[in-house]
Nucleic acid binder design. Structure first.
Lengths: 336, 336
DNA sequence: CTGAAAGCGCTAACAG
DNA sequence: CTGTTAGCGCTTTCAG
C-alpha cells in the first residue's frame, strides 16, 4: 500500500504538503501546480490513507458502533439501513455488533470503546437485560445512545412511539367491533413492553372496554413466545375475539399456531401486530400491522451519537414523525 | 484511556516490559514479581491496548471483513454466526459489510483493504453481479475468499453443495410420485443457480423423467420473484404437480401467491425449497426444505481467509459435511 | 531479567 | 507557499 511518503516522493514534494492536500484541509496553502502534481501522484499510486495511522494521530476513527440484540431480526435491518445512511452522509462508518442477553452488551461496548475501535455507540439491549446490567454503562463517559430502551441515566436515547403503536393496533380492533381484546406482550421487564402496554390499556379505557387480567400475556417477542401466547389465550373462557401482538415475530408464531389449532383467522380470531416487516406480508393470512419507523430510529440514533461525539450534547428523542401507521391486511375482521 | 506508559509508570517499570507481559509474548523474560506488579497495575487502570497503535505497528488489524449482499436475509444470519464463532476462536473480529448489486463489493472491498481496516475478506456477491465486475477483484493480491460464488481466478472460494441440495429436493418429489416437476430458479447468470440447475436436471434424468423446457423459470431469489414464478408456472399446460424452488425466500413468496390464487398446497401442488430458515417453519403449510449448511460456510470461509492471511495458502472448498438435509414438513405430498 | 530507542503512517504546529 | 519535526500507542530489536 502506498503511503504519504510514496506519494510525496513521486510528486517531488514533502510529506506534509501531501497530507494537507489529500486530507483536503480547507486551507492547504499549496499552489495549484503542486496540488495538481500531488493529486496526480496519489491517483497513480492508488493512494489510500491508512486507517490506523490516521486514527492514532487524531484519536478519532470516524466509526460508530451499532449494537443490536439480533442481527437476524427483520426489524433491525431497517434500523441498520437508517444508521448506515446517516453515517455515510456524515463521513462515518458503521461497525455492527451483536449484544446477546447473557452479556448485555457491556463487554462488547467496553472493548469497542476502550480499544478505540469506535468513537461512539448506538446500543439496543435485549429484552431480557436486567437494569443492573445497564448501570455500568451509565457510569461511562463514552458517547453512548440507547435505542428503544429506557434512559435510566445520563446517556442519550432514541425510542419509537411504542405507546402510540400499541394504541393504534388496539383501536383498530375496537373499531371493527371487538370487545374481548387480548394482548400478547413482551417480558414484564422489557422497556418497550411496558410502553406498549400503556397504549393497549389506554385504548381500551378510552372505549370503556374492560377485559380480564389474564387477557394480557407477558411471555416475550420471539416466534415461539407467540406460539405459547396463542395457547394460553385460547384456553381462557371467554375466549378473546381479537389479539394485539406486541411484536411481529411473535405474531408470526401466534398465527402459525392458530392455524395448527384449527382456529380460523380472521373468522374466529382477529390478529393485529405492532411492527411491520416483509414476513408480515407473507404469512397466511397476511398480517394487519402497525408499521413502526425503524429506519428513522437508525438515522436518529446515529445522528445523536455523532452529535454527542462532536459537541458533547445529550438528548432523548421519541420518533413521532412519521407516526406509526396502520397497514390493514387480512388478519383482522369484525367479530362474528 | 490508560496507555502502556501509564501502566509502566504505575508499576514502576519500563514500557517495553509492560508490552511484553500484556501482549503475552510466550517469552516475556520477566520475573514473576515484576509480572505481578504489571498485571495488577493494568487491572487497576483498566488498561486496554489501543487498536490503532497496535495496528499501525504490526500492520495487522486482526479483523476480517464479511461482505454479503443482504444482511436482512435469514440465511446469511447463520453464515454470520459461523463466521463470528470461527473468528472469535482464532482471535479475530468480524467487520460486517453490505455489497449491493450496483457496486459488486468492489468499492467496499478496495476501501476496507486499501485503508488497512481489515486483514482479509470473505465476500459473497449478489446474484445480479456481472462476471466483469468481479474481474477487478481477482487482480488483487489481497486475501479474499469468495463465498457461494464461482471462482473465476486465483482467489479462494467456499461454496455450498448446491448441486446436491437441488438434487435431494427434486428426488423428494420424484419419490412421492411426481413427474411434472417444475423448477423456480435464480437468474441465469447466478453461480448458485447454475449449480442448482444441474442437480435438478440430474435427478430428473436419473429417474427417466422428462419435462417441458418452460418448467424451469429463471427469475430470481426474492420473495417477489417467487410470486412471479408461481404465476408463470401455473399458466402452463399441463400444470406441474410439484415445484422445486431454488431459494427459501422465493419459496415463501411462491407459497403465498399460490394461496391467493386458490391453489391448495400440498393437495393441488407440492412445494419444496432449497435452503431452510425460520421463515420456512412459519409459512402455511410449513415448507418442506433442504437444509443447507450456511453456518459451516461461515466458519469455513473465515478459516480460509485467516489461513490465506497467515500462510498465503489458497483453497477452494465445497461444504459436503454435514451434507444437505431434507426436512419434511407439510408442503409436499403425493400428486393426486 | 530489564530498559532505551526506532519506527509504523499520519497530522499539525512551527520554521523558513 | 513549502518543508521539518514531534508525537499519537504500540512492538521489537538491541544493549545493558
Amino acid at each position: 500500500m502506498a503511503t504519504l511518503g510514496d506519494v510525496a516522493a513521486r510528486a517531488g514534494v514533502s510529506i506534509s504538503a501531501v497530507s494537507r492536500v489529500l486530507s483536503d484541509a480547507p486551507d492547504s496553502r499549496v499552489s495549484a501546480a503542486t496540488r495538481e502534481r500531488i493529486v496526480e501522484a496519489a491517483r497513480e499510486l492508488n493512494y489510500r490513507p491508512n486507517f490506523a495511522g490516521r486514527a492514532l494521530k487524531s484519536a478519532r476513527t470516524q466509526v460508530v458502533g451499532l449494537v443490536v440484540p439480533d442481527i437476524t431480526n427483520a426489524l433491525f435491518t431497517e434500523l441498520m439501513h437508517g444508521a448506515e445512511d446517516e453515517a455515510t452522509e456524515r463521513g462515518y462508518t458503521v461497525l455492527l455488533g451483536r449484544s446477546d442477553d447473557v452479556r448485555p452488551g457491556g463487554e462488547v461496548i467496553a472493548r469497542l470503546i476502550g480499544e478505540g475501535r469506535v468513537d461512539g455507540m448506538a446500543l439496543q439491549v435485549g429484552d431480557a437485560v436486567q437494569p443492573a446490567g445497564l448501570r455500568d454503562l451509565l457510569t461511562t463517559q463514552a458517547p453512548i445512545v440507547l435505542v428503544n430502551s429506557s434512559n435510566p441515566g445520563h446517556v442519550g436515547s432514541v425510542t419509537l412511539d411504542d405507546h402510540q403503536g400499541a394504541l393504534i393496533a388496539t383501536r383498530h380492533l375496537l373499531e371493527l367491533g371487538h370487545q374481548r381484546i387480548a394482548f400478547a406482550n413482551g417480558l414484564p421487564r422489557s422497556f418497550t413492553a411496558k410502553r406498549r402496554r400503556t397504549g393497549y390499556k389506554l385504548a381500551l379505557a378510552a372505549a370503556g372496554v374492560r377485559v380480564p387480567k389474564a387477557y394480557e400475556t407477558r411471555i416475550g417477542y420471539t416466534v415461539d413466545n407467540g406460539r405459547t401466547a396463542l395457547h394460553r389465550l385460547m384456553a381462557l373462557d371467554p375466549r378473546p375475539t381479537g389479539i394485539v401482538v406486541a411484536n411481529v415475530n411473535a405474531a408470526v408464531g401466534l398465527l402459525g399456531e392458530a392455524r395448527k389449532a384449527g382456529i380460523r383467522v380472521p373468522d374466529d380470531l382477529s390478529v393485529v401486530t405492532v411492527h411491520d416487516s416483509w414476513t408480515a406480508e407473507n404469512t397466511w393470512p397476511p398480517l394487519t400491522a402497525v408499521k413502526m419507523q425503524f429506519y428513522t430510529v437508525g438515522r436518529t440514533a446515529v445522528r445523536s451519537v455523532i452529535r454527542r461525539i462532536e459537541t458533547g450534547e445529550t438528548s432523548d428523542e421519541v420518533i413521532t414523525d412519521p407516526p406509526p401507521e396502520l397497514v390493514v391486511r387480512e388478519s383482522t375482521a369484525p367479530p362474528r
